[in-house]
Amino acid sequence: MSRDDILQTVKQNVAEFKPLPKYLKDTEQQSAEKLKEIFIKYLKQVGAQFIELKSNEDIAPFIAEHFPGAFDFGKNDIWEEYSEYCPKEKLNQLETVMLEGQLGVAENGAIWLNDSDFPNRLIPFIAQQVIIKLDSDKIVSNMIEAYRKINLENAGFGVFISGPSKTADIEQSLVYGAHGPKELKVILYSREKTNSKNVR
């Protein structure tokens, strides 16, 4: 059986044992402001457009004004319509979608999303334009921090998205909108800070 043959040969031929290295010194802790600054710098570098809003509450009116046809997958009401069994042709009609990211990585402008953020895995890729909203407190310094926070076993599919889809396969000329979304917009917002003296 191939499996057994392969494993047997591998077992015979492995190198002399070398331990898994212990990680480097911990990454320096940076302030939330600094992390946001670096994140925005890289968002721009990877071709994403960036919008900053004061709070979560401001997002809906902003979308309504600037992206009226957008499908907001942050709300569950459209999940059944665009479920895992949704026909591809219907998904292919999606122009603008909005998703919520779980965390952002400052060093490369990447945002983590998984199955719990969209009802159908094609959605972040098939739409022509994707808007991702992200709580700016959820930005970590680098991938080391990111992988410490996410748990791959929470979902069957997860993805780091850094900018719109792109290619440079034709004479190294950068073109956005290869097969995935042509544009990626990231809305950074802050959580409302509740103050017992200022109950709204």
Partner: peptide, 14 residues
């Protein structure tokens, strides 16, 4: 590039 546009983690079938 600091990272590829998509770093996809496939664990379970749809």
């Amino acid at each position: 590039q600091p990272i590829t546009t998509y770093t996809s983690h496939y664990r379970k079938p749809k």
